[in-house]
Structures are given as C-alpha cells and as structure tokens.
C-alpha cells in the first residue's frame, strides 16, 4: 500500500473527527486545536487516534497522543510514522 499524502491524511482525519465528534469535515483544518477549537475531549481523542491507526497503518502510543494538540500535529505525525 502506498503511503498517504498530507492531503489524503487531512481528508481522512477530517472524516474520522466528523464521525466521532460530529464536527463538519470542512472545520477540521491544520491549525485547529482538537480540544479548544473542535471540542474533541481527551477520551474522544483516543477514539480518533485508534481510528487513525487503523486507517493509516500507523502506531500512535499513548505517550505521543498527548503531544498531538492540533490537527496539523496529527497529520505530521501520521505522515512521518505511517508504514509503507
């Protein structure tokens, strides 16, 4: 499976956030904070992470989850850590 591009990851992440937290996909932008802007609380964030792991073939350990403050942080993390 080919690695996802940054745009594909953002689109996929927006769909996941939409499904879990009910946020419109167009609101899920790189500079948005999950907790402050998108109202994704710490537990929903875990659900987002698990869904992202499955979709993008990436492992995001709990210790790293706390560093993913913005959508951009998550996109960059997935981009760097996804398995080819």
């Amino acid at each position: 499976m080919a690695a996802n591009t940054k745009e594909e990851i953002l689109t996929g992440l927006a769909e996941i956030v939409n499904e879990i937290a009910g946020i419109p996909t167009e609101d899920v932008e790189l500079d948005k904070s999950f907790t402050d802007d998108l109202d994704v609380d710490s537990l929903s964030m875990v659900e987002v992470v698990v869904a992202a792991e499955e979709r993008f073939s990436v492992k995001i350990p709990d210790d790293d989850v706390k560093n993913l403050k913005t959508v951009g942080d998550a996109v960059s993390y997935i981009l760097e850590h996804q398995e080819d």
Binding site: S42, L43, M45, V46, V50, D62
Partner: peptide
Amino acid sequence: QEGQAVFRWAVY
C-alpha cells in the same frame, strides 16, 4: 490513573 491509556485499553 492515566485516563487516556486506561480508556484505550478498556475499550479496544
């Protein structure tokens, strides 16, 4: 407890 780690383990 570490809430997020517990949540992930407990659910999945």
